[in-house]
Protein backbone atom coordinates (compact mmCIF):
# COMPACT_ATOMS: atom_id res chain seq x y z
CA UNK A 1 0.00 0.00 0.00
CA UNK A 2 1.36 3.38 -0.83
CA UNK A 3 0.72 7.01 -1.29
CA UNK A 4 0.59 8.45 -4.81
CA UNK A 5 1.74 11.94 -5.46
CA UNK A 6 1.62 14.23 -8.48
CA UNK A 7 4.02 17.19 -8.20
CA UNK A 8 3.28 19.92 -10.70
CA UNK A 9 2.74 17.38 -13.46
CA UNK A 10 2.24 18.61 -17.02
CA UNK A 11 1.91 16.73 -20.26
CA UNK A 12 0.96 18.33 -23.52
CA UNK A 13 -1.04 16.03 -25.72
CA UNK A 14 -2.15 16.35 -29.26
CA UNK A 15 -5.88 16.79 -29.65
CA UNK A 16 -6.97 17.22 -26.02
CA UNK A 17 -6.46 15.11 -22.97
CA UNK A 18 -3.26 16.76 -21.76
CA UNK A 19 -2.75 17.91 -18.18
CA UNK A 20 -1.27 21.11 -16.79
CA UNK A 21 0.33 21.74 -13.40
CA UNK A 22 -1.39 18.97 -11.50
CA UNK A 23 -0.58 18.71 -7.78
CA UNK A 24 -2.38 15.91 -6.02
CA UNK A 25 -1.65 13.50 -3.24
CA UNK A 26 -3.60 10.28 -2.87
CA UNK A 27 -3.01 9.11 0.67
CA UNK A 28 -2.09 5.57 1.53
CA UNK A 29 -5.28 3.52 1.60
CA UNK A 30 -7.36 6.32 0.18
CA UNK A 31 -9.88 5.94 -2.64
CA UNK A 32 -9.67 8.91 -4.99
CA UNK A 33 -11.86 9.28 -8.06
CA UNK A 34 -10.67 11.36 -11.01
CA UNK A 35 -13.84 12.87 -12.45
CA UNK A 36 -14.25 14.91 -15.58
CA UNK A 37 -15.77 14.93 -19.04
CA UNK A 38 -13.93 13.18 -21.85
CA UNK A 39 -10.79 15.02 -22.87
CA UNK A 40 -10.37 16.53 -19.41
CA UNK A 41 -7.13 14.65 -18.78
CA UNK A 42 -8.32 12.17 -16.19
CA UNK A 43 -7.22 9.10 -18.11
CA UNK A 44 -3.92 10.82 -18.86
CA UNK A 45 -3.31 11.20 -15.12
CA UNK A 46 -4.04 7.53 -14.57
CA UNK A 47 -1.73 6.48 -17.37
CA UNK A 48 0.97 8.70 -15.91
CA UNK A 49 0.71 6.69 -12.72
CA UNK A 50 0.68 3.45 -14.67
CA UNK A 51 3.81 4.44 -16.54
CA UNK A 52 2.27 4.37 -20.02
CA UNK A 53 2.92 8.07 -20.39
CA UNK A 54 5.78 10.16 -19.22
CA UNK A 55 5.27 13.75 -17.95
CA UNK A 56 6.83 16.68 -19.78
CA UNK A 57 7.26 18.44 -16.47
CA UNK A 58 6.92 17.59 -12.80
CA UNK A 59 7.16 14.27 -11.04
CA UNK A 60 5.01 11.29 -10.09
CA UNK A 61 5.81 9.53 -6.82
CA UNK A 62 4.56 6.19 -5.57
CA UNK A 63 5.17 5.48 -1.90
CA UNK A 64 7.41 8.51 -1.74
CA UNK A 65 9.68 7.20 -4.49
CA UNK A 66 9.78 9.16 -7.74
CA UNK A 67 8.71 6.87 -10.60
CA UNK A 68 8.61 9.55 -13.25
CA UNK A 69 10.30 12.91 -13.25
CA UNK A 70 13.21 14.85 -14.57
CA UNK A 71 15.72 12.24 -13.45
CA UNK A 72 13.60 9.28 -12.49
CA UNK A 73 11.92 6.64 -14.63
CA UNK A 74 10.48 3.38 -13.47
CA UNK A 75 8.83 1.34 -16.26
CA UNK A 76 5.26 0.10 -15.73
CA UNK A 77 6.30 -3.44 -14.96
CA UNK A 78 8.41 -2.29 -12.00
CA UNK A 79 5.75 -0.11 -10.37
CA UNK A 80 3.86 -2.86 -8.57
CA UNK A 81 0.46 -1.59 -9.58
CA UNK A 82 -2.80 -3.34 -10.35
CA UNK A 83 -5.06 -2.01 -13.04
CA UNK A 84 -8.53 -2.72 -14.37
CA UNK A 85 -9.42 -1.37 -17.79
CA UNK A 86 -12.68 -0.25 -19.25
CA UNK A 87 -12.83 -3.07 -21.77
CA UNK A 88 -11.90 -5.98 -19.57
CA UNK A 89 -8.31 -6.59 -20.63
CA UNK A 90 -8.58 -10.27 -19.94
CA UNK A 91 -6.28 -12.26 -22.19
CA UNK A 92 -8.53 -14.36 -24.38
CA UNK A 93 -5.89 -17.02 -24.99
CA UNK A 94 -5.40 -17.82 -21.31
CA UNK A 95 -7.74 -19.48 -18.84
CA UNK A 96 -9.08 -17.56 -15.88
CA UNK A 97 -6.48 -19.03 -13.54
CA UNK A 98 -3.69 -18.40 -15.98
CA UNK A 99 -4.78 -14.79 -16.35
CA UNK A 100 -4.80 -14.26 -12.62
CA UNK A 101 -1.57 -16.07 -11.91
CA UNK A 102 0.38 -14.26 -14.63
CA UNK A 103 1.77 -11.52 -12.34
CA UNK A 104 2.78 -14.18 -9.80
CA UNK A 105 4.50 -16.18 -12.48
CA UNK A 106 6.49 -13.15 -13.58
CA UNK A 107 7.40 -12.51 -9.97
CA UNK A 108 8.66 -16.11 -9.86
CA UNK A 109 6.32 -17.15 -7.10
CA UNK A 110 6.39 -20.91 -6.50
CA UNK A 111 3.70 -23.10 -7.97
CA UNK A 112 1.84 -24.09 -4.85
CA UNK A 113 1.80 -20.57 -3.50
CA UNK A 114 0.59 -19.35 -6.88
CA UNK A 115 -2.33 -21.74 -6.82
CA UNK A 116 -3.20 -20.69 -3.31
CA UNK A 117 -3.12 -16.99 -4.08
CA UNK A 118 -5.07 -17.38 -7.31
CA UNK A 119 -7.76 -19.19 -5.37
CA UNK A 120 -7.81 -16.45 -2.78
CA UNK A 121 -7.98 -13.70 -5.37
CA UNK A 122 -10.79 -15.44 -7.24
CA UNK A 123 -12.75 -15.96 -4.05
CA UNK A 124 -12.20 -12.30 -3.19
CA UNK A 125 -14.05 -11.33 -6.39
CA UNK A 126 -16.61 -14.09 -6.06
CA UNK A 127 -15.35 -16.37 -8.82
CA UNK A 128 -14.51 -19.51 -6.85
CA UNK A 129 -14.24 -22.52 -9.12
CA UNK A 130 -13.83 -20.53 -12.31
CA UNK A 131 -10.11 -21.36 -12.59
CA UNK A 132 -10.30 -23.39 -15.76
CA UNK A 133 -12.91 -21.43 -17.61
CA UNK A 134 -11.96 -19.69 -20.87
CA UNK A 135 -12.60 -15.94 -20.83
CA UNK A 136 -14.93 -16.14 -23.82
CA UNK A 137 -17.33 -18.27 -21.77
CA UNK A 138 -17.68 -15.52 -19.14
CA UNK A 139 -20.09 -12.63 -18.99
CA UNK A 140 -18.84 -9.05 -19.10
CA UNK A 141 -19.20 -8.70 -15.37
CA UNK A 142 -17.35 -11.92 -14.72
CA UNK A 143 -14.51 -10.86 -16.95
CA UNK A 144 -14.22 -7.62 -15.08
CA UNK A 145 -13.98 -9.61 -11.86
CA UNK A 146 -11.19 -11.68 -13.39
CA UNK A 147 -9.39 -8.46 -14.27
CA UNK A 148 -9.88 -7.26 -10.71
CA UNK A 149 -8.56 -10.50 -9.28
CA UNK A 150 -5.53 -10.26 -11.52
CA UNK A 151 -4.95 -6.66 -10.43
CA UNK A 152 -5.17 -7.57 -6.74
CA UNK A 153 -3.33 -10.86 -6.70
CA UNK A 154 0.06 -9.23 -6.21
CA UNK A 155 -1.18 -7.01 -3.37
CA UNK A 156 -0.24 -3.98 -5.41
CA UNK A 157 0.97 -0.63 -4.14
CA UNK A 158 -2.16 0.84 -5.64
CA UNK A 159 -5.12 -0.17 -7.72
CA UNK A 160 -5.81 1.85 -10.87
CA UNK A 161 -9.32 1.67 -12.26
CA UNK A 162 -9.98 3.05 -15.73
CA UNK A 163 -13.77 3.33 -16.10
CA UNK A 164 -14.06 -0.30 -15.10
CA UNK A 165 -17.85 -0.39 -15.22
CA UNK A 166 -18.45 1.69 -18.31
CA UNK A 167 -19.05 -1.26 -20.60
CA UNK A 168 -21.54 -2.97 -18.29
CA UNK A 169 -25.28 -2.52 -18.13
CA UNK A 170 -26.84 -0.35 -15.44
CA UNK A 171 -28.00 -3.06 -13.02
CA UNK A 172 -24.73 -4.95 -13.15
CA UNK A 173 -22.82 -1.70 -12.82
CA UNK A 174 -24.61 -0.87 -9.58
CA UNK A 175 -23.97 -4.30 -8.10
CA UNK A 176 -20.29 -4.38 -9.02
CA UNK A 177 -19.88 -0.86 -7.69
CA UNK A 178 -21.12 -1.97 -4.27
CA UNK A 179 -18.93 -5.03 -4.34
CA UNK A 180 -15.89 -3.01 -5.30
CA UNK A 181 -16.51 -0.55 -2.52
CA UNK A 182 -16.67 -3.30 0.07
CA UNK A 183 -13.68 -5.05 -1.40
CA UNK A 184 -11.31 -2.11 -1.36
CA UNK A 185 -12.31 -1.13 2.15
CA UNK A 186 -11.57 -4.66 3.22
CA UNK A 187 -8.18 -4.81 1.55
CA UNK A 188 -7.22 -1.26 2.39
CA UNK A 189 -5.62 -0.74 -0.99
CA UNK A 190 -4.95 2.73 -2.37
CA UNK A 191 -7.26 3.30 -5.34
CA UNK A 192 -7.21 5.79 -8.18
CA UNK A 193 -10.45 5.50 -10.11
CA UNK A 194 -11.11 7.30 -13.37
CA UNK A 195 -14.70 7.93 -14.35
CA UNK A 196 -16.95 10.39 -16.12
CA UNK A 197 -19.92 9.15 -14.13
CA UNK A 198 -20.41 11.52 -11.20
CA UNK A 199 -22.73 9.18 -9.34
CA UNK A 200 -20.03 6.56 -9.39
CA UNK A 201 -17.37 8.98 -8.22
CA UNK A 202 -19.49 10.39 -5.43
CA UNK A 203 -20.62 6.97 -4.30
CA UNK A 204 -17.25 5.26 -4.17
CA UNK A 205 -14.54 7.75 -3.46
CA UNK A 206 -13.13 9.16 -0.25
CA UNK A 207 -12.23 12.21 -2.25
CA UNK A 208 -13.07 13.25 -5.78
CA UNK A 209 -10.67 15.21 -7.97
CA UNK A 210 -12.54 17.09 -10.69
CA UNK A 211 -10.61 17.83 -13.86
CA UNK A 212 -11.48 20.42 -16.42
CA UNK A 213 -9.42 21.02 -19.53
CA UNK A 214 -6.35 19.40 -18.03
CA UNK A 215 -6.41 21.21 -14.72
CA UNK A 216 -7.57 20.12 -11.29
CA UNK A 217 -10.45 22.40 -10.37
CA UNK A 218 -11.48 20.87 -7.07
CA UNK A 219 -10.37 18.03 -4.86
CA UNK A 220 -12.80 17.34 -2.07
CA UNK A 221 -14.96 14.89 -0.21
CA UNK A 222 -18.08 13.97 -2.18
CA UNK A 223 -20.41 15.81 0.18
CA UNK A 224 -18.48 19.04 0.02
CA UNK A 225 -18.13 18.75 -3.72
CA UNK A 226 -21.85 18.49 -3.91
CA UNK A 227 -22.72 21.27 -1.54
CA UNK A 228 -19.80 23.61 -2.09
CA UNK A 229 -18.59 23.44 -5.67
CA UNK A 230 -15.45 25.45 -6.26
CA UNK A 231 -16.40 26.65 -9.76
CA UNK A 232 -19.56 26.92 -11.84
CA UNK A 233 -18.18 24.06 -13.95
CA UNK A 234 -18.01 21.78 -10.92
CA UNK A 235 -21.51 22.82 -9.92
CA UNK A 236 -22.92 21.95 -13.29
CA UNK A 237 -20.90 18.81 -13.84
CA UNK A 238 -21.35 17.35 -10.35
CA UNK A 239 -24.85 18.41 -9.47
CA UNK A 240 -26.51 19.42 -12.75
CA UNK A 241 -26.90 22.99 -11.54
CA UNK A 242 -28.41 25.65 -13.77
CA UNK A 243 -25.93 28.48 -14.33
CA UNK A 244 -27.37 31.99 -14.50
CA UNK A 245 -25.43 35.08 -15.47
CA UNK A 246 -26.39 37.61 -12.77
CA UNK A 247 -25.36 40.73 -10.90
CA UNK A 248 -25.46 40.32 -7.13
CA UNK A 249 -27.34 43.05 -5.33
CA UNK A 250 -26.69 41.79 -1.78
CA UNK A 251 -28.95 40.13 0.78
CA UNK A 252 -29.83 37.28 -1.52
CA UNK A 253 -31.08 39.48 -4.31
CA UNK A 254 -29.83 39.07 -7.86
CA UNK A 255 -30.52 40.76 -11.16
CA UNK A 256 -30.54 38.93 -14.46
CA UNK A 257 -29.03 40.59 -17.47
CA UNK A 258 -31.78 42.92 -18.56
CA UNK A 259 -32.58 43.99 -15.04
CA UNK A 260 -35.18 41.54 -13.71
CA UNK A 261 -34.53 40.94 -10.03
CA UNK A 262 -35.20 37.82 -8.05
CA UNK A 263 -34.38 36.39 -4.66
CA UNK A 264 -32.51 33.34 -3.43
CA UNK A 265 -33.48 32.26 0.06
CA UNK A 266 -30.19 30.80 1.12
CA UNK A 267 -26.74 31.78 -0.11
CA UNK A 268 -24.16 29.70 1.80
CA UNK A 269 -21.16 31.84 1.04
CA UNK A 270 -21.56 35.49 0.44
CA UNK A 271 -18.99 35.76 -2.27
CA UNK A 272 -19.54 39.47 -2.65
CA UNK A 273 -21.41 41.60 -5.09
CA UNK A 274 -21.16 42.61 -8.72
CA UNK A 275 -21.35 40.42 -11.83
CA UNK A 276 -20.98 36.68 -11.56
CA UNK A 277 -22.54 33.28 -12.09
CA UNK A 278 -25.24 31.83 -9.90
CA UNK A 279 -25.49 28.06 -9.73
CA UNK A 280 -28.79 26.52 -8.66
CA UNK A 281 -29.30 22.77 -8.35
CA UNK A 282 -32.58 21.25 -9.60
CA UNK A 283 -33.60 20.13 -6.13
CA UNK A 284 -33.15 23.68 -4.77
CA UNK A 285 -35.91 25.12 -6.94
CA UNK A 286 -39.59 24.94 -6.03
CA UNK A 287 -42.42 25.71 -8.39
CA UNK A 288 -45.42 27.74 -7.34
CA UNK A 289 -48.49 28.35 -9.48
CA UNK A 290 -48.76 31.45 -11.63
CA UNK A 291 -45.84 33.52 -12.82
CA UNK A 292 -43.54 34.10 -15.70
CA UNK A 293 -42.26 30.53 -15.99
CA UNK A 294 -43.74 28.15 -18.55
CA UNK A 295 -43.56 24.36 -18.25
CA UNK A 296 -41.85 23.02 -21.38
CA UNK A 297 -41.37 19.37 -20.55
CA UNK A 298 -42.14 16.95 -17.75
CA UNK A 299 -39.99 13.86 -17.26
CA UNK A 300 -41.27 11.33 -14.79
CA UNK A 301 -38.34 9.75 -12.88
CA UNK A 302 -40.11 7.45 -10.41
CA UNK A 303 -39.68 8.98 -6.98
CA UNK A 304 -39.32 12.48 -8.44
CA UNK A 305 -40.00 14.23 -11.68
CA UNK A 306 -37.92 16.63 -13.66
CA UNK A 307 -39.73 19.70 -14.90
CA UNK A 308 -38.12 21.87 -17.52
CA UNK A 309 -39.20 25.45 -17.16
CA UNK A 310 -38.58 28.35 -19.48
CA UNK A 311 -38.04 31.40 -17.36
CA UNK A 312 -36.90 34.83 -18.45
CA UNK A 313 -34.93 33.51 -21.38
CA UNK A 314 -33.33 30.73 -19.32
CA UNK A 315 -34.05 27.07 -19.11
CA UNK A 316 -34.30 25.74 -15.56
CA UNK A 317 -34.39 22.11 -14.61
CA UNK A 318 -36.45 21.60 -11.50
CA UNK A 319 -36.67 18.49 -9.39
CA UNK A 320 -40.24 18.34 -8.25
CA UNK A 321 -42.11 15.84 -6.03
CA UNK A 322 -43.52 12.93 -7.97
CA UNK A 323 -47.11 13.55 -6.91
CA UNK A 324 -47.42 17.09 -8.27
CA UNK A 325 -49.11 17.45 -11.65
CA UNK A 326 -47.84 19.83 -14.28
CA UNK A 327 -49.28 20.51 -17.68
CA UNK A 328 -47.26 21.67 -20.63
CA UNK A 329 -47.46 25.43 -21.01
CA UNK A 330 -48.67 25.87 -17.45
CA UNK A 331 -47.58 29.12 -15.82
CA UNK A 332 -45.29 28.60 -12.85
CA UNK A 333 -43.09 30.69 -10.62
CA UNK A 334 -39.71 29.29 -9.67
CA UNK A 335 -38.64 29.85 -6.07
CA UNK A 336 -34.90 29.57 -5.48
CA UNK A 337 -34.24 27.87 -2.16
CA UNK A 338 -30.49 27.76 -2.36
CA UNK A 339 -27.79 28.89 -4.73
CA UNK A 340 -24.06 29.34 -4.95
CA UNK A 341 -22.75 32.59 -6.30
CA UNK A 342 -19.41 32.81 -8.09
CA UNK A 343 -18.36 36.41 -8.60
CA UNK A 344 -16.40 37.09 -11.79
CA UNK A 345 -12.66 37.53 -11.72
Amino acid sequence: MAQIEFQDVSLAYGGGGGVTGVDLTVEDGEFVALLGPSGSGKTTLLRLVGGFLRPDRGAVLIGGEPVAGPKAWVPPEKRRLGMVFQYHAVWPHRSVASNVEYPLRLAKVGRSEREERVREALSLVGLEGFEHRAPETLSGGQRQRVALARALVMQPAALLLDEPFASLDAALRARLRAELSALVRRTGVTVVHVTHDRTEALALADRVAVLHEGRLVQVDEPRRLYSAPATPFVARFVSDAALLRVRARGAGRFALEGGNEFEVENIPEHGGSGPGTLAVRPQDIRLEPGGEGRVRAVLFMGDTQEVVVGWRGHELRVQAPADARYRLGEAVRPVFGRGVFFPDG
Binding site: P75, P76, E77, M83, F85, A89, W91, Y102, P103, L106
Partner: peptide
Amino acid sequence: VLEEAAQLSGASPLRALRDVTLPL
Protein backbone atom coordinates in the same frame (compact mmCIF):
# COMPACT_ATOMS: atom_id res chain seq x y z
CA VAL B 1 -4.72 -2.61 -22.80
CA LEU B 2 -4.04 -6.32 -23.01
CA GLU B 3 -0.34 -5.54 -23.25
CA GLU B 4 -0.57 -2.83 -20.63
CA ALA B 5 -2.23 -5.24 -18.25
CA ALA B 6 0.71 -7.58 -18.75
CA GLN B 7 3.17 -4.78 -18.13
CA LEU B 8 1.46 -3.81 -14.90
CA SER B 9 1.63 -7.46 -13.97
CA GLY B 10 5.39 -7.13 -14.16
CA ALA B 11 6.16 -8.04 -17.78
CA SER B 12 8.63 -5.98 -19.77
CA PRO B 13 7.22 -4.55 -23.02
CA LEU B 14 8.93 -7.28 -25.04
CA ARG B 15 7.72 -9.94 -22.64
CA ALA B 16 4.21 -8.51 -22.86
CA LEU B 17 4.45 -8.68 -26.63
CA ARG B 18 5.60 -12.28 -26.42
CA ASP B 19 3.06 -13.42 -23.84
CA VAL B 20 0.04 -11.54 -25.10
CA THR B 21 0.19 -10.11 -28.59
CA LEU B 22 2.28 -12.77 -30.26
CA PRO B 23 0.02 -15.69 -29.30
CA LEU B 24 -3.01 -13.68 -30.35
